[in-house]
Write a protein that binds this DNA or RNA. Structure first.
Lengths: 242, 242
DNA sequence: CAAAAACTTCGAACACTGTTCGTACAACTC
DNA sequence: GAGTTGTACGAACAGTGTTCGAAGTTTTTG
């Protein structure tokens, strides 16, 4: 599949090479940065569904077709958007404290980031074509675990597991968060009318105890569980080598 | 927002009420089940991007507009698709063994399910409007943790955390899994040409050790960490009450 | 038994989408 | 100044979800 290879390569070049101005031809009116910034602004304020090439062009005051002289297509724009978020956030290893404090801090920070910028979770691909920010982040995240006695493979596994957990929680709570409190009430009222709950006694017992499913307030709890697991692993490693 | 409330209600009615044939009018040529099955078949074989109302109509041999007499729109179709997957899978509490064996089994089963049916992860909403299958699943998952001494809130938190982790891992590995081995090689070759890796020493060290980032092979590792955390919690609960 | 009511079907159209093509224009090199 | 190379972008194409209205089908009513 040569076409796909080429597309792959083009994205990477866009992510890593900064465009040098060619010898001939008129001056370019736009920059990559401005295009990506405009696209993010739209996704942020109007949602990812409202992001279209035409809309971006309007935002920048240019014709739609002009964008295609900067970018091969919308997929590439999204790849650039994905890499550019979190560029201003502190890196994992820059947080204070020991490895656990750092892991906790960046997990919380990322989780908060995904809640504030939910469109990132809706992008189709976010790690397929790694950009500068992803590599910087990954490098820093691995450094957090230096000196813990974990092997390289274990470090990577820990980083990816926490990352997966953070994204997963953010994704789950996104569904519910898009509904207002009133809408949740309305939904539950409708459910009460439509559904016979007798087949779900365990669920009813939990809800009766005041717990609502997928409310998006379970992040800290699961994070502690996961980090407890990491701590156990590190402790056992230390015990066996000393 | 009355419109959104109405939409919400309509989805729930579609999920829970089975359509009764109205008094007058010609017999209906299709059923909800057939429509949803056709849509899933398309998503499965051609990907979610290929799923269009027109494509579904062709698959069923009807006119496109006819679908709208069964469904208000595509969003509702996707909600029905989301709820219908996993209908044939074993329920969490039906797996053999103790709570840990059961948690492990359904986590693995779901993870495998998401890898086989990646389109589920790309649907915009999957838990906002709960259908029969989601509630059955949730009820069974909560039952797994009965007799562990956990509070209702803790049970829900454990279930959601594991669910979040499973989905997060599946989502991360999806990006990489869409690339073939050749494409990954091609990508890494392109990266090697384009990127100066000196700013990322920790990452380089890990990759040199034979570990590749986001390869999608870290699921078991993180699951163990998470369940170790749950086990610690349950043990501490038991110790304090006895 | 015919007429009316209620419902289903679906071709055509509308407003959108991403993307391509061809033309008009601008800035540099020779 | 001529030629080359690249930019800008209006217009068009094929696709999308959805709506409308006319035509057809079944059941109930008068």
């Amino acid at each position: 599949m040569n076409a796909k290879d080429d597309a792959q390569r083009r994205v990477l070049e866009l992510l890593w090479k900064d465009a040098r101005r060619p010898a001939r031809g008129p001056r370019r009116g736009l920059t990559m940065e401005r295009i990506v910034a405009a696209a993010i602004r739209i996704a942020e304020t109007e949602g990812l569904a409202a992001l279209s090439m035409r809309r971006v062009a309007v935002e920048l005051g240019v014709g739609t077709a002009s964008l295609y002289t900067y970018l091969p297509g919308k997929a590439e724009l999204e790849a650039l958007m994905a890499d550019s978020i979190g560029a201003d956030d502190p890196l994992p290893d820059d947080w204070p404290g020991d490895w656990r404090a750092k892991l906790e801090a960046w997990a919380r920070n990322d989780h908060e980031g995904y809640r504030k910028h939910p469109w990132v979770l809706q992008l189709v691909a976010t790690v397929a074509a790694p950009g500068p920010n992803l590599l910087r982040w990954m490098d820093s995240a691995l450094r957090v675990l230096e000196g813990t006695g974990l092997t390289e493979a274990e470090k990577m596994a820990v980083v990816e597991s926490v990352d997966a957990y953070v994204r997963g929680q953010a994704r789950l709570s996104l569904d519910t968060r898009e509904l207002s409190a009133d809408e949740v009430r309305e939904r539950d009222a409708a459910l009460g009318e439509l559904v016979d709950f007798r087949p779900y006694p365990a669920l009813v017992a939990t809800v009766r105890a005041g717990v609502s499913p997928y409310a998006g307030d379970q992040f800290e709890f699961g994070l502690r569980l996961l980090l407890d697991g990491v701590e156990t692993l590190i402790a056992s490693k230390r015990a066996s080598t000393s």
